[in-house]
């Protein structure tokens, strides 16, 4: 891979980041990288597997309508995002981190550089998640702060 290819990247817009503000956020996080395009792919396998109804696709399409500059495709996500990156002269793909196993698998196949969203709450690693009450016992003293305050204390 040549240096030019590393200096450029495309943003993979997935179904958990359907706001223009994430594009600016990912762009700022991927500093020293020129963002040369952004693409969203309606995942044919997901639509079929979860038997998504028309209203969900319309809702997502309306979100994308308010995200000018994002190319909208359908098909196989890995194939389409790779082809989009290649057409833009890069192999580097950046996106917003997700806990969805489907998105994580696709991101892994694409070699995505994930950008984490601002923390809702900062918690110790490996907290007990067996019940919400255990999570809340740790979270409640830390979550009633603004993101700015949380970031200042991080």
């Amino acid at each position: 891979m040549n240096e030019n290819a590393r200096d450029k990247a495309v943003i993979w817009v997935h179904d958990e980041m359907l706001s223009l503000s994430w594009l600016g956020y990912v762009r700022r996080a991927a500093e020293r990288t020129e963002i040369v395009g952004a693409v969203f792919v309606f995942d044919d396998t997901w639509v079929a597997d979860e038997r998504l109804s028309l209203k969900r696709l319309v809702f997502m399409a309306e979100c994308l309508e308010q995200m000018p500059g994002v190319e909208v495709r359908r098909g196989d996500v890995v194939q389409e995002v790779s082809a989009f990156a290649e057409a833009h002269g890069t192999t580097r793909i950046v996106s917003l981190a997700s806990t969805s196993p489907r998105l994580r698998r696709q991101g892994e196949q694409l070699g995505v550089d994930w950008v984490c969203e601002p923390p809702f709450v900062e918690l110790p690693a490996r907290i007990d998640l067996k019940r919400f009450s255990r999570y809340w016992g740790k979270a409640k003293s830390r979550v009633f702060r603004t993101t700015e305050e949380i970031m200042e204390q991080a």
């Binding site: 503000s21 998504l52 109804s53 028309l54 209203k55 969900r56 696709l57 809702f59 309306e62 979100c63």
Partner: peptide, 18 residues
């Protein structure tokens, strides 16, 4: 996406977008 319309053809009054 005719297959999605076949699951349910309704469209919500809830609009997508920021």
């Amino acid at each position: 996406f005719p297959e999605a319309a076949a699951v349910s053809d309704w469209v919500s009054d809830t609009r997508g977008g920021r």
